[in-house]
C-alpha cells in the first residue's frame, strides 16, 4: 500500500511539473508581456524599457528556471496589474470558489445519488425515465444558459435572489444550482448503471435469499459496490467545479479564482494566470490522488504490482 501511495504521489508531482512547463510556455506565447504592460499607446522605446525592467529580454528557459525556482520557494511572483504578491491575490479569491464548488458538489451528490438509486432499482419505470430526462437536459443545456434563465426568473421577475455578487448566502444559490446541474447527470448515470449491475450479481441474490429486508440489500450490499466508480468520478467533478467555474463566476460577478482567471487573461497579467492554472492543477492532482488511495483502500486489487 505504501509503495502504491508513493508511486501515485510521484506521478502527481510529474503532472504538476508538466503543467508548470506548459503554462509558462503558453502564457508567454499568447501575448508579449512587455507589450501588454506597456499599454495601448506605448512607443517602441516604452516597450523596450519595460522588457528590460522586468527581465523579459532574457532567454525563455532562463526565465522559466527563475520562475520555477521562485515557485518552489513559495514565491508566486508579483502581479503586474495589482502591484502586489500573486499569492495574496489568489488566496483572497479562493474562499468564494471553495464555497461555490463545495455547495454545488454537495447539491449534485445529494440529488444525483438517490435519483440514481431509484432509477437503478426500477429500470425503464417512469421514475427512471424522469431521471434520464433530467440527466439528458443537464448534459445538453449549457450552464451559462441555465444561469441566465435563473437570473431572468429569480432576479428580474421574482426579485427573490440577487443577480450578481458574492457578499451574501443568497448570492450563492443561483450559481450553485447552475454549476450542480451540470455535474449531476454523470454522477446519476454512474449510480444508476452501478445499481443495475450489482443488483443482478450473485451476492445480492444471496442476500435476498437470506431474507434480508430490501433497504438492507440495496443500501448495505448493492450501493457500497455500486458507488466505487463514483469515487474517482467525483474527484474529477469536484476538481472541475473548483477550476471550471470561470463562466459561472463571470456571469454572476463572483469574486472567485475562475473570475480572477478571466480578469487576468483579459488584462494580460501572466503571473496570476500561471498561479491559477497551477492552483487548479494542484486541486486535480490532490483529488485524483486521494481518489486513487481511497479506491485502493476499498479494493486491494487496484493496488497492483
Amino acid at each position: 500500500m505504501l509503495r502504491f501511495i508513493f508511486r501515485r504521489a510521484a506521478v502527481g508531482v510529474l503532472v504538476l511539473v508538466a503543467v508548470a512547463i506548459l503554462t509558462f510556455a503558453l502564457t508567454n506565447a499568447a501575448v508579449d508581456p512587455a507589450r501588454a504592460i506597456a499599454g495601448d499607446s506605448a512607443t517602441a522605446d516604452d516597450i523596450r524599457a519595460i522588457r528590460e525592467l522586468y527581465g523579459f529580454d532574457r532567454p525563455l528557459h532562463i526565465q522559466f528556471l527563475a520562475w520555477a525556482q521562485d515557485i518552489i520557494q513559495g514565491d508566486l511572483g508579483q502581479s503586474y496589474r495589482q502591484r502586489r504578491p500573486v499569492s495574496d491575490v489568489v488566496l483572497e479569491r479562493l474562499p468564494v470558489t471553495m464555497i461555490l464548488g463545495a455547495t454545488a458538489f454537495l447539491l449534485a451528490v445529494v440529488v444525483a445519488i438517490p435519483l440514481g438509486i431509484l432509477a437503478g432499482l426500477k429500470p425503464n419505470s417512469w421514475i427512471d425515465r424522469c431521471a434520464l430526462t433530467i440527466a439528458v437536459l443537464g448534459q445538453a443545456v449549457p450552464n451559462f444558459w441555465l444561469a441566465l434563465m435563473g437570473i431572468v426568473i429569480f432576479s428580474v421577475q421574482l426579485r427573490l435572489l440577487p443577480a450578481s455578487g458574492s457578499g451574501t448566502w443568497q448570492s450563492f444559490v443561483l450559481p450553485s444550482v447552475a454549476l450542480a446541474y451540470y455535474a449531476m447527470p454523470t454522477l446519476m448515470r454512474l449510480t444508476r448503471a452501478g445499481m443495475i449491475d450489482t443488483l443482478q450479481s450473485d451476492y445480492v441474490r444471496t442476500a435476498r435469499a437470506k431474507g434480508l429486508l430490501p433497504p438492507q440489500v440495496v443500501l448495505k450490499h448493492a450501493l457500497r459496490n455500486a458507488i466505487l466508480p463514483l469515487v474517482s468520478v467525483s474527484a474529477v467533478q469536484l476538481g472541475m467545479m473548483l477550476g471550471g467555474s470561470v463562466v459561472i463566476e463571470t456571469i454572476f460577478a463572483m469574486q472567485g479564482i475562475g473570475y480572477l482567471a478571466w480578469e487576468s487573461i483579459t488584462m494580460s497579467d501572466p503571473p496570476v494566470v500561471q498561479a491559477i492554472v497551477l492552483t487548479i492543477a494542484s486541486f486535480y492532482v490532490v483529488l485524483t490522488f486521494s481518489a486513487d488511495v481511497i479506491n485502493a483502500w476499498l479494493d486491494p486489487r487496484l493496488r497492483g504490482s
Binding site: A163, S164, T250, A253, E263
Partner: peptide, 18 residues
C-alpha cells in the same frame, strides 16, 4: 462602483434595481 463583467448580468441588475 461594482465590476460586473457580463453585459447580461449588468442589464439584469439594472432591471431588478440592483
Amino acid at each position: 462602483y461594482r465590476t460586473i463583467p457580463d453585459t447580461s448580468t449588468q442589464i439584469a441588475e439594472l432591471l431588478s434595481g440592483g
